[in-house]
């Protein structure tokens, strides 16, 4: 992989904590301490302009929180986010197409809004022509602009949010599970569209998906997260060919495989640890098949290596 010196996003030691304490009164009565959850715990990565970086990892590991930090919906509790682009042209496709569309607005108005914000002087007929075009781009019809979000199925609503994101002429798109509500044939259309737009407009994507076959198709670089941290980051093909972190290996082994389904699959062992009280040392150690003493005491750091291949694991370090 060639590293070009034109990073559009640099994330440095990013942290986000949430207060998940019981209410004040309960804390007093039950003598419970204040509790903090470290949703994002010292994350760094760089995204090059025109490239796609994918975040993968277990539910609750902090992917959506990173997405919201990058788009400014949450302020960070620590660390830095440097965005070298036009903030107005940073758009997000949300994980939840139900919550993210205003139910009282017609679809046409929803899609037009980012366009009106970006270019307030655009004449009305240009706006509506652009909305029609966007609806067609995502496989809906111009007439759908007159309807309300509740008149659409889940997948159709996700296409509306994609159209809305594209209306803002983004240069950087944060896509949180953009196709997980879509069926595979519409997914193929949306992914092909996203790739085409990327090529034509040099779009950059921060792409979140739990579907590793989708990620493999879309991403240039994959960052694997576990409990608020990136445990491994590698160019896509290298990650699939040579996963370094034991968690990544487990993850790759768990993908349901259409070509060789394992119907008697036993799910990954171990309870998912709590981000409120993460395990000591390497937070993966209670579930790791390679665990040794040092892992329980010391926290492995991600060692910088050649290119963007980095892994936070003592065993991988020793083997490398």
């Amino acid at each position: 992989m060639n590293i070009r010196p034109n990073a559009i996003l640099e994330v440095d030691a990013l942290e986000r904590r949430f207060d998940v304490s019981a209410p004040w009164l309960n804390r007093m009565i039950e003598r419970k301490p204040r509790r903090t959850l470290r949703a994002v715990d010292g994350v760094d990565f760089v995204i090059q302009r025109g490239q796609t970086l994918a975040l993968v990892g277990e539910s609750g590991c902090g992917k959506s929180t990173i997405a919201k930090l990058v788009t400014g919906l949450h302020p960070p509790s620590g660390g830095k986010i440097r965005f070298h682009g036009d903030r107005d042209r940073l758009q997000m496709i949300f994980q939840d197409p139900f919550a993210s569309l205003n139910p009282r607005w017609r679809v046409g108005r929803i899609i037009a809004e980012p366009l009106r914000t970006l270019r307030p002087d655009t004449p009305e007929d240009t706006v509506s022509a652009r909305v029609d075009e966007l609806l067609r781009t995502v496989g809906l019809a111009p007439a759908d602009g007159l309807k309300f979000p509740h008149e659409f199925s889940g997948g159709q609503r996700q296409r509306i949010s994609i159209a809305r994101a594209l209306a803002g002429e983004p240069e950087f798109l944060v896509c949180d599970e953009p196709t997980s509500a879509l069926d595979v044939s519409v997914q193929a259309q949306v992914l092909n569209l996203m790739k085409r737009l990327q090529k034509e407009m040099e779009l950059t994507y921060l792409f979140i998906s739990h579907d590793l076959s989708v990620v493999r198709h879309m991403a240039d670089v994959i960052a694997v997260m576990y409990l608020g941290r990136i445990v491994e980051i590698q160019p896509t093909m290298d990650l699939f060919a040579n996963p370094l972190h034991p968690y990544t290996r487990l993850l790759l082994d768990t993908i349901p495989d259409l070509d060789a389904p394992k119907r008697d699959r036993s799910p990954m062992g171990g309870e998912v640890p709590s981000p409120v009280s993460p395990p000591s040392g390497c937070s993966f150690h209670p579930r790791c098949p390679l665990v040794f003493d040092r892992c329980k005491q010391e926290r492995p750091e991600r060692r910088a290596e050649v290119h963007d291949r980095r892994v936070a694991c003592f065993a991988a370090e020793a083997g490398a």
Partner: peptide
């Protein structure tokens, strides 16, 4: 058949995913 063909593979690399042209009728 079209649906099965449009699934991204874990083994093969393709620039474009296979698609069923058009969309489902309203």
């Amino acid at each position: 058949t079209g649906l099965m063909g449009s699934i991204p593979s874990l083994r093969k690399d393709v620039e474009e995913l296979q698609m069923i042209p058009g969309s489902m009728p309203r």
